[in-house]
Design a protein around this nucleic acid. Structure first.
Lengths: 341, 341
DNA sequence: ATGAAAGCGCTAACAC
DNA sequence: GTGTTAGCGCTTTCAT
């Protein structure tokens, strides 16, 4: 495997051509202060003439930094949340990094082999920090990285007392707001289609549903809640079907994700129920840019851009300080009303 | 910015603990031959005890390789082709790299800033090679990388005489086959909805359409061809609308992408034409895993997995040899019949 | 089979 | 301001 072509000019050659010392060239390429303007220009001319490009391995070795961060996606992230969610986060992260010299590296970790390889890559010092899209309780990666002392920021948390730095949406609050809105608009028989409860995000959203009922003094009927095995449309469809079978009087549903909501809508249509007139549906909105106004649904929208920006801010801060200050950020969600109620 | 935590054990410390020289430790971690088994085990024990992880910057500097390759996506790739296309390629690439020590890095290049940063990253020796998803004629990146002597493989080509190594589907052949199939099934008034002709891929597909007509001795009517400004559904819809306006007798359409085809189908439905009974539609299938059997459409399918694997094979080969052998691979497409004709 | 030693190209600390 | 120097931690000859 070849790399920087043999014969690539080095800093030393630049220095020789410009008639200055290596230190001066180093200062120029790092725009450090304390270099006379004429000298700087002379060096820049030499750099241009030679087509000099700094060797980043050498810089890394001497400077103890990689000027790169990795954003890790597990296979399940990719599938579960779908593209739009992912796209918005990545764009926000990229934007937040624009004014820095930090290169963003996306990596896919699907198998144990890939995880091992990535951990070696990260621990080996090729990145200064790691952003994790992962949210699975069983994922060992966050702890591996944290134990290795690598600045790490997660999107979402694995449990209520997550130790690794994270940024999350206010899932419980958002769900509570949604259900409260349904109650205020006069709905009473409100079902819930939950995601898999071994995921903390699903747990939070279901908790929000329950809290809203409780706060309004509405008795919680366990048979109004269906736990899905995943967040897919198919699961939403099935959940909705069983829900209307058990509860013909149902007049509203809170779905823990927009894909679940989409499935629910379909099942309602198939059952001849009109939405939102007969049954109002509110979904938690993980994918919003994808489905413009498509199901005329009131949704709980997450501030995806803000989440990405917050992740970068936290990561950069952790990269500065040596004594890592663990921190958590929870961002508010927004209830976007269309014509549900 | 911190990196490998201070206090990280070095190869030297491992050597000391194991009571051997640095060279021996190096041989062990690279599992080079010529180390006695007992020695090897002693070293491995020391590595485990210390929790040693090689410093990749140092390895890179001394070894002249990065053990990493980048897959670059431009903003337009990402949007234009959509997720499924992208996903399949990336998965295939990842799989092809599984048995190597090479880490796959996805990078997003949207702006000039990001392009500059990436070029410095790549030329700086942080990757041994680059895979480009880009297909835009105006994209300067391929030439920048090639000029820098970096092994580079493109997906698709920018023109008929592309100099950079690429892997491409047989776009002209696929289109020709599709239109021939329509002709053979008795259709005669066959329209074409083309993509933007400043993209070589669109040019090829349209050429295939024309060649099929010519081979069958059917006169080419220019008013049966609509050039879209992009590959979106909206464009497909508009193109189809204008097509049936001009040619009520139309009984088949070749669309240069599946999104264009989807738009065309919609417009046909809105116009009260039945598909495929009244009008047969064949699309070139860029996204197939996404739309399982959704529009009951015969499509020209690209071997996405093979494309990804071929890209990796070519890249690895270029990384081996010093005298770069420019090469191009064009893979056959497949006509997947559903009930179009 | 294994140890010793010479770099790889840069940054940063220190002298001038 | 600018030149000099000492590493950063590894791979790779070259001895032994």
């Amino acid at each position: 495997m070849g790399r920087q072509r043999p014969g690539t000019p080095t800093l030393e050659e630049v220095a020789a051509l410009a008639g200055v010392g290596r230190g001066t060239v180093s200062r120029v390429i790092n725009n450090a202060p304390g270099v006379r303007d004429s000298t700087r220009r002379a060096v820049q001319r030499a750099i241009a003439e030679l087509g000099y490009v700094p060797n980043l391995a050498a810089r890394s070795l001497a400077g103890h930094r990689a000027d790169a961060v990795a954003l890790v996606m597990t296979e399940t992230d990719w599938r579960m949340f779908g593209e739009p969610f992912f796209t918005e986060i990545v764009h926000a992260v990229g934007d937040a990094l624009t004014d820095t010299p930090v290169q963003l590296l996306l990596t896919l970790v699907r198998t144990d082999t890939e995880r091992r390889r990535f951990v070696e890559y990260a621990r080996g010092g090729r990145v200064d920090g790691v952003l994790l899209m992962s949210v699975h309780a069983a994922d060992p990666l966050p702890d591996m990285l944290a134990k290795a002392g690598l600045p790490t920021v997660m999107l979402g948390r694995r449990s209520g007392d997550e130790s690794v730095t994270y940024v999350d949406a206010d899932n419980a609050g958002g769900a509570r707001g949604a259900v409260t809105y349904l109650l205020e608009s006069g709905r009473r028989a409100i079902g819930a289609i939950s995601g898999p409860l071994d995921m903390y995000v699903a747990e939070c959203r279901l908790r929000g549903y329950r809290e809203a009922l409780e706060l309004s003094g509405v008795a919680a009927d366990p048979s109004l809640v269906v736990e899905g095995d995943d967040f897919t449309e198919e699961t939403g469809r099935r959940a909705m079907t069983s829900l209307i079978g058990r509860h013909p009087e149902l007049d509203a549903v809170f779905a823990a994700s927009d894909t679940l909501a989409a499935g629910a809508l379909e099942a309602l249509g198939a059952a001849g129920r009109r939405v939102p007139r007969d049954v109002a549906v509110i979904g938690f909105d993980d994918l919003h840019p994808a489905r413009p106004t498509d199901p005329p649904l009131t949704t709980v929208r997450q501030p995806l851009g803000e989440i990405g920006r917050a992740m970068v801010r936290l990561l950069l801060e952790e990269m500065e300080e040596s004594p890592v200050a663990w921190r958590h950020v929870i961002l508010r969600t927004e209830l976007v009303r269309r014509d549900t109620a």
